[in-house]
């Protein structure tokens, strides 16, 4: 009998998550105090400042034409999960718990723009094989590190890290940390992309609890917005995108700065920029 009690105590001790872990479940409204111009009006064409991109990513972005998004097959794409926090992201997080054991199986998220739903598996299941489909939300597993929920995601579709054509490949893996401080939820996203980034790209986004939040449905039906010859895909030929020079001129920046690269992520770059001449 004594042995049995020992076993049950052990089970109770280990099977339940530590009580101190701060559950991120709830309704969350986005805070736009970080990177507002990029997130709401939208990024300027040719602004790659602060992005650790390589030359291949730069050329893809330089030749990207926003008209691409008018193609029917592009209209209903949601943001990939690593970017989705940045959009008009009214957020809901809820738990899925095994009824019998009360063990946490997964967290689910729903985001307002295009209504993507995501599952973060907490039950230790393996990631799928490499031949399994990739999705906009990817395959995510989570674990607690103290009060921080750390999420690992792979199996993402080809996506973007800025909404002006800067690509993120389907080979990227993403680590996210969710930190709750009372009514504030901070999400830190770290993108590792061996194809288009030279260093991990890190950014944070904040949310505020909003118990009265109601997220509206977000249906999407693709339509022909522009009549085009079949198979036409808008893009700029290399060296012909005249919009690229507008951003540095508008803000009196040196022409090199918006070209991005790992160096432009670090504070020292501001000092370097002061030595450069503004674009004409």
């Amino acid at each position: 009998m004594h042995y049995r009690i020992t076993g049950l105590l052990l089970a109770a001790m280990f099977a339940l998550p530590a009580a101190a872990q701060l559950d991120p479940s709830g309704e969350w409204a986005p805070l736009f105090h970080e990177d507002f111009p990029e997130r709401i009006p939208g990024p300027e064409i040719g602004d790659y400042l602060g992005l650790p991109i390589n030359a291949a990513a730069r050329l893809r972005a330089d030749t990207w034409d926003a008209s691409l998004l008018t193609l029917p097959e592009h209209q209903c794409k949601p943001h990939p999960s690593d970017y989705a926090w940045r959009g008009p992201a009214n957020l809901r997080i809820w738990k899925e718990v095994d009824r019998e054991t009360q063990q946490l199986i997964a967290y689910h998220t729903h985001i307002s723009w295009q209504a993507p739903e995501r599952i973060i598996w907490m039950d230790g299941r393996p990631h799928p094989p490499d031949y399994a489909p990739h999705t906009w939300q990817g395959f995510s597993t989570g674990k607690w590190e103290g009060d921080i929920l750390t999420i690992t995601t792979d199996h993402l579709k080809n996506g973007w890290i800025r909404r002006n054509g800067v690509p993120r490949s389907d080979r990227a893996t993403v680590t996210e940390h969710l930190l709750r401080h009372g009514n504030i939820l901070t999400v830190v996203v770290i993108v590792n992309d061996p194809v288009y980034l030279t260093e991990p790209f890190i950014r944070s986004t904040d949310f505020q609890a909003d118990e009265r939040q109601q997220i509206a449905p977000y249906p999407c039906e693709a339509v022909v917005e522009v009549v085009r010859p079949k198979g036409e895909v808008p893009s700029h030929l290399p060296g012909t995108n005249t919009f690229l020079t507008e951003f540095p001129k508008k803000y009196d920046l040196p022409a090199e700065a918006p070209r991005g690269g790992a160096e432009t992520m670090y504070p020292e770059y501001r000092l370097k920029m002061k030595q450069m001449k503004p674009a004409k």
């Binding site: 799928p128 490499d130 792979d154």
Partner: peptide, 12 residues
Amino acid sequence: SAPLCAQQPRNA
């Protein structure tokens, strides 16, 4: 211990 020794992705 199951979550700690989760299987690695299977490759083609």
